[in-house]
Design a protein around this nucleic acid. Structure first.
Lengths: 215, 215
DNA sequence: TACAACTGAATGAGCATTCATTCGGCGGCG
DNA sequence: CGCCGCCGAATGAATGCTCATTCAGTTGTA
């Protein structure tokens, strides 16, 4: 019900134009930040008149919300499908990490909006957090829980804390990538992140190159 | 010297008032977000006239910057001193994690500003990132590097990625704490985070609460 | 002609910043 | 010692600008 996107009014206008405005908005927000973006910037970029924007969206904030929600929903339903296919908790986490980094790594503008704009106010973030982040974390936590239940993951660590670490590590990889001038494929680091999460920097001995502690 | 804080002009006015304005600003920013905060909100909260704010700070942005830089500088110099005292990389990371969570966990308003407002625009963040985050990460990376050199940490993982994971995990703990209604001592989770970072969820056989690196 | 989609100039609210004015304390002078 | 006049901090109303949003009018199509 909230934020489906299309403005209240009657007839369902041009879907292509709708998308064009949304994409333009994401690009502009990514470039200048939500509060420094003018509606006219978005309209210009979408090659549309200022007023037209209001035929498709109730207001500026709704544009941001729609962009975020749409992208997130797409990600979540994809992630859920993919994760279900996999049998082991470790594999599931590995896939989630890849999907997470791949989704954002494929669209820098969107990544900027997620990493920066989404967090510009406690209100936005806690709202988002409430509706969406929680869903994502549920997926992570489920995998962790399962792993703990079946004994492949340690049980002496809080599932919640572990899930936050997992998410936080990935999230930071995205931020770092967004801020980095250097071009690299974000999803390539997924493996390392999961590796650290599962095996730790001290390596626990079950690793090829991992050196044993000093005798 | 960027952002020392005190407005350009001559005499160094009332230090107590300066601090009062800064604290008020942090509180207001935390509450409403930078862009939604009016100077008059800050002035009101500091029990000062609107114009007075401009006797101490050049503009709104400078207030934010000063607050952030001051807090960060204090943290960094403290962290450096503390870390130097410790001999092992693992201990150093442990201490850093504690200091990080303790610093923000002791001042919710400041934490909100760091977790939210600081990231509201690529510009702010990349500026900050350049001057400060890098310094902090250098400390983390130094410890990791050292650990890898001495063989207690795996060498098959990128120092940079590992440092980002470490930071990201802590950062997410802070965000989660900020958004959480529940009251808990943030610094209490430092141990678990470091534990996961060092030993991983699969544990590598070392399940003690405080794992010793060297037998 | 009728109707929907679109346009973009006009409106007006919100707010950072300025600055003419007030006020309190201090040093010099009678 | 007490009074005067100055200085600069503090004030807060006024200014001016920046947009988000609206809406009267235009365009195009059935």
């Amino acid at each position: 019900m909230p934020v489906t996107g299309n403005a209240s009014s009657g007839t369902n206008r041009n879907a292509e134009k709708y998308q064009r405005i949304l994409d333009a908005a994401v690009a502009v927000f990514a470039d200048k930040g939500f509060f420094n973006s003018r509606i006219s910037d978005i309209a210009d970029r979408a090659s549309v008149a200022d007023g037209t924007v209001y035929l498709y969206f109730k207001n500026k904030e709704e544009i941001l919300m729609t962009a975020i929600n749409t992208a997130f929903d797409a990600f979540m339903s994809h992630a859920r499908t993919e994760v279900e296919k996999l049998p082991s908790p470790a594999q599931r986490l590995r896939r989630l990490a890849f999907l997470h980094l791949n989704a954002l790594g494929s669209n820098r503008n969107l990544a900027v909006v997620f990493q920066m704009e989404l967090r510009q106010s406690t209100r936005f973030l806690s709202e988002f957090s409430h509706h969406h982040m929680v869903e994502y974390l549920r997926l992570v936590r489920a995998a962790i829980h399962e792993g703990q239940a079946s004994g492949v993951f340690r049980r002496d660590l809080s599932e919640k804390i572990a899930a936050n670490c997992f998410f936080g590590a990935l999230d930071e990889m995205v931020t770092s990538w967004v801020l980095s001038a250097h071009e690299y494929r974000l999803s390539n680091v997924a493996g390392s992140v999961v590796d650290i999460f599962l095996n730790g920097m001290q390596g626990g001995g079950n690793h090829a190159v991992a050196p044993k502690a000093i005798p």
